[in-house]
Amino acid sequence: MSELPPDPPRNVLPDLIIPGLALAFAIYYLTTITEVPWIAQASAVLVSGLLLLSIFAFAIRTAYRLKAGTEIIRLSGLIPDQNLLLKRLVLLCLMIAYVWFLEDLGFTLSTFVFLILAILLLSSLANWKKALAIALAASVIGYVVFIFVFETRFPKGPIERTIEEMRDGN
């Protein structure tokens, strides 16, 4: 529940992202149903119609407020904290890399690597010892709980296989 600053003109540009995405998706969706019988199109057409209507209403309201001066559109000041934005983008890349390597490296190893990098990133490289400790603890606990005890379908990699072989060997 973050508080929006109530005072001078609010930049409304970010608020347009979700309607924009919704609009783009609705249009794409409609292009994929041109071939199906009409009764299978009906509800999608109806809902996307309502969506367009709400977005239209939203646009009118925004225009009205822009005119009244309570809201403005501008590009500057969109990102209050560049450093934080950069961190978020790097975090996003780390997540994608995590997903990418998860099946090959297995849960435990990739989680460990991801956690240590993410914690170092967020803490701006301070205190790598604590990062190491927490990453280690979380991935080991994760392994024990999810793979060892509950045998969930977590992706297995070299570490999991080695431990299994050791278990079987004994």
Partner: peptide, 20 residues
């Protein structure tokens, strides 16, 4: 409504035609 449209992704139950 955006959520609803996303929920409409997939093959329909009658004709099994993939959409979105």
């Amino acid at each position: 409504l955006f959520g609803l449209m996303i929920g409409y992704i997939g093959a329909d139950v009658v004709y099994e035609a993939p959409r979105g």
